[in-house]
Design a protein around this nucleic acid. Structure first.
Length: 571
RNA sequence: CGGGGCAUGGCGCAGUCUGGUAGCGCAUCUGGUUUGGGACCAGAGGGUCGUAGGUUCAAAUCCUACUGCCCCGACCA
């Protein structure tokens, strides 16, 4: 493509609406434009990268034996009522009616449609296993779309659904997708980790997320330095301390702690480090009562872990101040586990403390020198907290570090959740109907593009991983309007490279060199060839690589082989 | 949905407190001089100041309602 014929501008100033780097760069480089909140147009340059992501996904899905289909974006409400998700999904599901007043949804996902297809088309165990996938537009009416296409409302997803006669086949299909995903993201040149994940609202048993590692990621991931263990923070288990609880050495005493509400304030006032203070949170139980959750002062409550515990409301709900007062006799800021009549759950690390500080359940008072058993009954032990840097890995090897990630893929073993609801069965070897086992496997295609930029940029612009770059080579002519020789050489080289099957973006604009170079850096095409008069006279071209920088002179007549030697070998 | 903020040429902003001629930079167009790292000079076009009411002799500015967008939280590819 000739840049002189690409009418979209690059932008110098960072648009005010964009917060994260990838969003800013995508707008500045002219990859996307916003139409409404969370809804974007893909411009030619951005679309090329999007298509490259799609192509790699298709190749690896096909290679894994999956079959491509294309399902409708608009789906009848009946299917959602049948699966029960019409009522469960909530306002994120965009519902609409047609002219006959029939209810439809814009599909946020396609379990219902694919399961409907499966129950109609699949009749025998002999047809299994099978994996259908599509690359298609989804709509989720997110509460808060943000970060450009990273969390849009309309987005492109690759979703795949596998069907199996038994659990072992489902597990094998899951493993095959795990391998396919690993190949895809490796081919895309992304630094990623598969991590264990919570199954959330989709349901099912085993589940892993594929996370692109980036500091701006919305997800926290705990990774072990001893082996390949990695888990989403919501799921990463905090092991109980191995050392036994020290013996009590201090008497319990009540101290006045006026105007202190937070652990930090109490800690500062009493001169006791936060890790020797306890914080007590009152949450709703599932029986109408309340439950006290006790954590070490320096630890954070993990809501996903807590709400899975029996007796605790799911989703987790903090008790109202009135209920806290009724249950403890004090307001948040001065509450503690001593003398509570409600059920008390304590995190393992909180239970390992001796001579600790906690709220006294009296206004603006705390207790010091408190000890389990001696001063209050030993609470039920539970894993309630987020792991922190330095915690031992649940895998038993190494210690954990918490890093940030962008979730670009998620794979699930669904079991029979949807096939049961929609009565999707096949005949087994005995000729009896058997309910299908399912797996489902998603990739946020549009999000991959943003994640790739988030992970690959510098202060000047994008640094495309070679397999995702909209073009392989950027060809720049220096002042073509002034030099016919440069212009002719540029046109000829453009034709030559294009004929050789190389994807070339040709900056033939009549713009000053500085403009062209800064745009080159913004756009992030990996390989750049510069044609100028002074090189032309010597029979040389200039080459520079976006990531490594620097200028190299190379003979003009060997440019094709030279470039090919610089291309990254395919993964 | 709860909390906070913003809305003024295509983009980024000032002007709003204290009502009185709509302004700056970038971008765009014309002419000229320039040309290896976002040029310079001269000129030009482009804005119902988010929408609708209200107060006032007079509203971008004060009041009311609404809409859109952004940020923080819970949800997710």
């Amino acid at each position: 493509m000739r840049l002189s014929q690409y009418p979209i501008n690059t932008v110098k100033e960072t648009p005010a609406e964009a917060e994260v780097t990838s969003h800013q760069l995508m707008l500045r480089a002219g990859l996307i434009r916003r139409l409404a909140a969370g809804i974007y147009t893909w411009l030619p340059l951005g679309l090329r990268t999007l298509r490259k992501v799609e192509r790699i996904i298709r190749e690896e899905m096909d290679h894994a034996g999956a079959l491509e289909v294309l399902m409708p974006a608009v789906q009848p409400a009946e299917l959602w009522q049948e699966s029960g998700r019409w009522d469960q999904y909530g306002p994120e599901l965009l519902r609409l009616k047609d002219r006959h007043d029939r209810a439809f949804v814009i599909g946020p996902t396609h379990e219902e449609v694919i399961t409907d297809l499966a129950r109609r088309e699949l009749k025998s165990y002999r047809q299994l296993p099978v994996n259908f996938y599509q690359i298609q537009i989804k709509f989720r009416d997110e509460i808060r779309p943000r970060f450009g296409v990273m969390r849009g409302r309309e987005f492109i997803m690759k979703d795949a659904y596998s069907f199996h006669a038994d659990e072992a086949s489902m597990a094998a299909g899951y493993d095959a997708m795990h391998a396919a995903y690993t190949r895809m993201f490796t081919r895309m040149g992304l630094n990623f980790r598969p991590v264990r994940a919570d199954t959330g609202s989709i349901g099912g048993s085993a589940s892993e997320e594929f996370q692109v590692l980036a500091d701006s990621g919305e997800d926290a991931i705990a990774v072990s330095d001893g082996d390949d263990f990695a888990a989403n923070l919501e799921l990463a288990a905090a092991l109980p301390p191995t050392q036994p609880r020290p013996a009590a050495s201090a008497p319990m005493a009540t101290v006045s702690t006026p105007k202190t509400r937070t652990i930090a304030e109490v800690s500062a006032l009493l001169g006791v480090p936060p890790e020797r203070c306890l914080k007590t949170l009152i949450v709703d139980g599932d029986d109408g009562g309340v439950v006290a959750l006790v954590l070490r002062g320096d630890h954070e409550l993990n809501a996903v872990k807590a709400q899975k515990l029996p007796g605790i409301a799911n989703p987790l709900c903090m008790a109202t101040p009135e209920r806290v007062l009724a249950a403890t006799g004090a307001e948040p800021g001065s509450i503690g586990p001593v003398g509570l009549s409600c059920r008390v759950l304590a995190d393992h690390s909180a239970l390992a403390l001796a001579d600790f500080v906690c709220g006294a359940n009296q206004r603006e008072s705390h207790l010091t020198g408190v000890n389990w058993v001696r001063d209050l009954p030993e609470a039920e032990a539970a894993d309630l907290r987020n792991v922190v840097n330095g915690d031992p890995s649940p895998s038993g090897t190494g210690t954990l570090t918490v890093v940030r990630g962008i979730e670009v893929g998620h794979i699930f073993q669904l079991g029979r959740k949807y096939s049961e609801a929609l009565k999707a069965t096949v005949l087994d070897t005995a000729g009896k109907p058997t309910t299908l086992f399912m797996g489902c496997y998603g990739i946020g295609v549009t999000r991959v593009v943003a994640a790739a930029i988030e992970q690959n940029h510098d202060d000047k612009g994008i640094l495309w991983p070679e397999p995702l770059a909209p073009y392989q080579v950027l060809l720049i002519t220096m002042s073509p309007a002034r030099s016919e020789a440069v212009r002719t050489a540029g046109d000829a080289l453009y034709a030559q490279l294009t004929a050789a099957g190389i994807e070339v973006l040709y900056d033939d604009r009549d713009a000053r060199p500085g403009v062209k170079f800064t745009d080159a850096e913004l756009l992030g095409i990996p390989h750049c060839v510069v044609i100028g008069e002074r090189g032309l006279a010597a029979g040389t071209l200039e080459y520079r690589h976006r990531r490594t920088g620097g200028n190299e002179e190379t003979p003009a007549d060997g440019i094709l082989d030279f470039l090919r030697s610089r291309f990254a070998p395919p993964v």
